[in-house]
Amino acid sequence: MTTLTRSLCAFWNSSIGKKIVVAVTGLIFIAFLAGHLIGNLLVFVGQEAFNEYAHWLHHLGHGGAIWAARIVLLGSLVLHVVATVSLTRANRAARPSYAKEDTIQASRSSRVMIWSGLTVLAFIIFHILHYTVRVDSQLAELGKEDPWKMVIVGFQNPAASIFYVIAMVLLCSHLAHGFSSAFQTLGLNSSKTRPTLQLIGKAYAVLICLGFISIPISILFFGYGN
């Protein structure tokens, strides 16, 4: 093994190294979510605007850009999940429980990261099958011609919309801790900036959550696009 690969292995096998991988991949998702939300909200601007955006996205760099993004996101997801599952298992193994447990100040979100994360993972798999792979033949037909209509029809399904909303609420919880936590992991904060970063993280989490759920709610409950 070269020095570099040995160092990379040691980095991955160390607690701080794995956490840095979690933080960097988490920040990649945070940047992605902001872009993805802005794009999706075009659904409210109108059929034409949304379809143009979808067309532009799929043909950017002769269709290469979207694949580059998919590879980075999928790679990040695998790293994030493998690292967090391994960290969580190690954490459980390190600590026997108290007969009388108490928590001084850790937030509820921070204590359910693995559960909010795994729900989001289940959602991501469902979401990709729903709108990217399009396992439903009706949506697959629509997706080719009219992505806007595909979104509308897709969310007219109550089960899909409700799961979407639940997943977004848990994503909000995940981000409420994760956003500022990533800055601590990367050493990019101090006691002066920590409260501000925590506030920005919570605001970001709420905005992302409300932004995304506005789409299925408008379609399912307010008949948008009907």
């Binding site: 607690s15 956490k19 954490n91 390190a94 600590r95 850790a106 921070s110 204590r111 801790h177």
Partner: peptide, 14 residues
């Protein structure tokens, strides 16, 4: 520290 079997920090500040 890692070899001693301590857990990993999750930034909860307990």
């Amino acid at each position: 520290m890692d070899g001693e079997g301590f857990g990993n920090c999750t930034n909860q500040y307990e």
